[in-house]
Write a protein that binds this DNA or RNA. Sequence first.
DNA 1: AAAAAAT
Length: 734
Amino acid sequence: MPKNKKPAGGRAQNFEPRYGKKTSYQDAKRRPGQASAGTTGSKSPKHRGFRAAEESAPAKGRWTEQDRAGRAEARGIRSNSRGDRGFDDRPRRDAEGERPRFDRAERPRFDRSGGAERPRFDRNERPARSFDDRPRRDDRTERPRFDRSDRPARSFDDRPRRDDRAERPRFDRSGGAERPRFDRNERPARSFDDRPRRDDRTERPRFDRNDRPARSFDDRPRRDDRTERPRFDRNDRPQRDDRPRRDDRTERPRFDRSERPARSFDDRPRRDDRTERPRFDRNDRPQRDDRPRRDDRPRRDERANRSDWQAAEKSKAHQDHVDVVHERLQAEAVDAASVEQASFSDLGLGQNIVRTLEGLGATSPFPIQAATVRPILDGRDVLARGRTGSGKTIAFGAPLVERVLRGQAGKRRAWGRSPQALILAPTRELALQIDRTVQELAQSVGLFTTQVYGGVPQGRQVGALKKGVDIVIGTPGRIEDLEKQGKLDLSEVGIVVLDEADHMSELGFLEPMQRILRLVQDDAQKLLFSATLDREVAALVDEFLVNPAVYEVAGETQETSTIDHRVLVIDHRDKAEILTSLVDRDGKTLVFTRTRAYSEMLVEQFEDAGIAAVALHGDLNQAKRTRNLQRLTDGKVNVLVATDVAARGIHVDDIDLVVQADAPDEYKTYTHRSGRTGRAGRAGTVVTLITRQRRRRMTEMLERAEIDAPFDEARAGDDVLEEITGRQAANVDA
DNA sequence: AAAAAAT
């Protein structure tokens, strides 16, 4: 029996204890009457959401008398899904009549101030909600009233839009209702996750009060446990070997000898068989190798039976799979200069969308956008390769919204309508990020989006889908899950986007993608985007795309990039110290590790050195993942240590240093990790740490990535580290 | 190895 007993099928490491710990934390740390997301009327003060009988009883009586009827009328369908404010059509519609009046009178002044005020409102509202959930719920029924007063402020930004709407009859209907909605949607977007949010909110206050301590306690003990476990194991084993084990060992053989004989009769013949079997296996293997199908099977058998074979074959198989260089797709190279003069408007996008793009900072199209918008509007299947940070999200998002809008022209947006478009991403963070952009575009023309991804309760997502959304953005697992449950109808989806399409075509993603693509309309338009788009997408292209247009942007080479690449050849014993000195700087630094465990270890190491750092990897719960990424975005920490979950697509402004604590195995991974810096033309540095043994592999990988990077030998404290971090050497001397 | 569903 191994020393570390783990439940069968359990994960090797779990940094977010999901079972007992969560419930005990809920019971132990929650105080009666404290903000809670629990249902009202929980039985005991120790339960979340407990409310004393006296509070609710009298109020309940009143409601049943008169208010109920009035409320029901006022709230309408809303009562079916209290949590989803963003989708409350009726309050909004009721408010619409009033809004225009207010808006017209006030718009000019508020336009300027409006933008600045929104954040303030959000902040004010959140605390209010976070103090008491129950009052919040009451507030929610009242909120429409507050919202009406608030909306004017919010809607002022919309006024230009509304003017636009006046130009477009279609937009007016949807637009007038939407923009206020948009404001709400921003909140709603948040509000879609009302329940999770409420959970978050209720958790946050807890954390804030107890929390930061609470969190730090949870983290440190865990980290301590983790760090201690290996240490103890290592220390204990030798010690035990020296003292007790030797005794045990001398004793055990004796016992074994006395016991085994009885058993050994059966065993020996078996052992003979076993010794023969490997021989046969070895003889058979060449035979099997001859048969094409069995090529893989002997490997698996070997792995199961023999650890040495396992190691050898595994690394061989690993290398077989790793870093396959696929043929470049034949693409029409779009010359940036030739399309530079076209505006978004010229490309066929409507005024509302163009205006929203301006608000997002996209005043004129980037090359990849100039290339793809028109063919997408024309309804073609499109494959597009644009390097990291080149604006791919808008390149597919804006024309997608425009097409969904055109497809709905003249139709009424019905309750519970099925989504018309689907955007798929490989990670939850990326899905969220895409939604932030696409949702704004959609809102500007009165369309709704919702996110469908795992790691959060389904309720809010299902509630949104029930009310009807136009564009679904999510990750494959939850989308399939909800579809199987009959809660997500993909049969009317006419446009599908695969972001990071080559990654979505890799083992593990390919089959879910195929299943999902088979559920949408047969003739649905397909859009495949990635910075490293190659023939790996062939499996999907051949089955699902019709005569696709393929685009890339001419002249995207390292020379036109703003990223400076460095490789440091180090001794393994210097690694920890070098990493600490690399992240000990002012700018935002993103550190990549190969494993979740190492990312946790590095966070602990940095914090021990007095450098605030957070982790991002798949063993954290979604709330923590989102929070930790947000803390980097907000600048509350400057160091994020992540696995490859953060390698693709994630945009954080101002990351000016990417450190690869573990070198990537694939050139594509190198490309995507590097692309977290140097975005939209900003400068950035990528540093990869390797040991001497890895020089050759690294050189080959950089060739495939078409990157030229100097290799420097570095030891702890070397000047080259100061040069990279931008610190002055004087600081080091002191 | 990691990621993507939940249990």
